[in-house]
Design a protein around this nucleic acid. Sequence first.
DNA 1: CGAACTATTGAGGTAGTTCAATCTTAGTGG
DNA 2: CCACTAAGATTGAACTACCTCAATAGTTCG
Lengths: 232, 232
Amino acid sequence: MDIPARVSVLERSTLFGGLPREALEAGAEAASEKKLDKGEALFRQGDDATTHYIVASGRLRLDQTTPDGKNVVLRFMGPGDLVGSVAVMRGIPYPATPTAVEETRALLWSHARMMELIQAHPALAMKAMNMMGGRIEELQERLQQVATQQVERRIAATVLKIAGQSGRKTQAGVEIPFPLSRQDLAEMTGTTLHTVSRTLSAWIEEGIIEGRRSSHLVIKRPHRLVEISEQA
Amino acid sequence: MDIPARVSVLERSTLFGGLPREALEAGAEAASEKKLDKGEALFRQGDDATTHYIVASGRLRLDQTTPDGKNVVLRFMGPGDLVGSVAVMRGIPYPATPTAVEETRALLWSHARMMELIQAHPALAMKAMNMMGGRIEELQERLQQVATQQVERRIAATVLKIAGQSGRKTQAGVEIPFPLSRQDLAEMTGTTLHTVSRTLSAWIEEGIIEGRRSSHLVIKRPHRLVEISEQA
DNA sequence: CGAACTATTGAGGTAGTTCAATCTTAGTGG
DNA sequence: CCACTAAGATTGAACTACCTCAATAGTTCG
């Protein structure tokens, strides 16, 4: 990627978005790049956190594995999203593994380089805090959902959130443009793939969604999903 | 509180801890104070976030209420903990209500004052990020627990975490030095007070804990609780 | 074309909820 | 100091949402 291309990625990112041109250019010039094939990991849970990443294109699934082998999907991340920085800033090992669900490119900076950038452009620190605050909010909302709501509501809310973040409008409805398995949804909502499968089957029956078997999910009646996600 | 007393609170706080004396003094001088009786709220979920707080003494329970009236306890906060700053920094309404579970004193700063302090002492920004990173970690861990573990394990892990944060060693075991109701534990673990009550009754039966009815909880066999919290 | 995933669907079991009644203790006012 | 009240806690019984186990089927890819 050349510098202008990098700048345009940074412009749209959580960390650099809205900063003056010279900050973007400094960031772009200081960056390195990495390309991941589908299924490859950017780094692994437990690795020393030495590097900050920003997704340039493609999509990552952030997985956390428990000592007893269970898996939780923390979030999906797309272009502009910052990966790994929380751990790097805190000086702790990466707490999760980001895996490419499709071919993905990322920009990256060593911690030392990033600290230089922050020193030179203090607005970066404010943006970083803002990003972290957003993560906290999101996690609090999900905790509340898993702690208080029934499975169908949680699945509905999760599908809607993913659609909001990454959905593309088509004539048939809102399409989620990357492969999202029943297992992924189960690990995001704290249930089993069986329950997800049953629930989605019922929704297909009702005409709310489309996408049996591994085709991309299309939401045909988003409003109905909102109702389900809010049902008392 | 006089300035030296405030300085000693700030010294022990997540935000100011470890900073040079002059930063502590600047913070102490810029602060105001507020006292809460048991049961009073520092602010309310939904209020405009205008003020940063640090707990000086006492203890707060941070509650999040859902539109449909359910309640989730996000965390307990004691001396040194920062309250409200995430929302203030992001410019969003406070997402939860901190209620005093015992008489509590807090120091507070307007957003403008806090920004001046951060400008003058950039290390504060780093400390704030560190604090937020810690929250993110904690929330990810809880999400993982609620999503994958059985209720008894979650209750055990929660009791242990609270004991780790606030417990005092006595000859009888580790005591949690503030009133912690079955309801509170239920709202922290995403279950009902009935289930919590049954679980704690069984633990009392087994001699793991002490504290029927509203006396303070004492953990007599912490190691056994750790086992439960890790049981496959 | 076969192997390996991923998804679907049924049947049965259970952890935890819900409903309901009773009990204990701290606090309040007479 | 004692009766009364309110709030938290306990415990039983019945129910159910969801999980687990199990078998089958459709898809993808070498």
